[in-house]
């Protein structure tokens, strides 16, 4: 059963939004994601391009600058809420994990 769009974020969605907490050029996001995750997460150009389109349509990011084909984006309030909620969800998951694993120990 496919999940509801953006109800939860994939790892790639999460890091793209995280990069866009400050204005960033679309094409630079790939490198930025690699940098902040030490290469653990990589976003393919096709995936990035389509996710940016979807985030734009969902109002989670907005365009800030267009120079020829080079576009820059920044996260909107809606995007920030989604990112925070995802972060809290992961935190809750982590907390559940430690509570149960430590309990077993």
């Amino acid at each position: 059963m496919p999940r509801e769009k953006f109800q939860t974020l994939t790892e790639q969605m999460f890091y793209i939004l995280l990069c866009l907490r400050k204005e960033c050029c679309g094409m630079d996001i790939m490198e930025e994601v690699g940098r902040i995750t030490d290469g653990r997460v990589s976003v393919g150009p096709g995936t990035l391009y389509n996710l940016l389109e979807q985030f734009l349509r969902a109002g989670m990011i907005r365009e800030t600058k267009v120079e020829g084909r080079k576009k820059s984006y920044i996260m909107t309030q809606k995007g920030a809420v989604a990112l925070r909620e995802e972060c809290e969800r992961i935190q809750r998951q982590t907390a559940d994990y430690w509570r149960l694993v430590r309990g077993e120990d």
Binding site: M30, S42, V43, G44, G46, T47, N50, L51
Partner: peptide
Amino acid sequence: PVPIETDEEIRLEV
């Protein structure tokens, strides 16, 4: 190289 598509759900949607 980093694959062009790294999210299968997005690939399928497109």
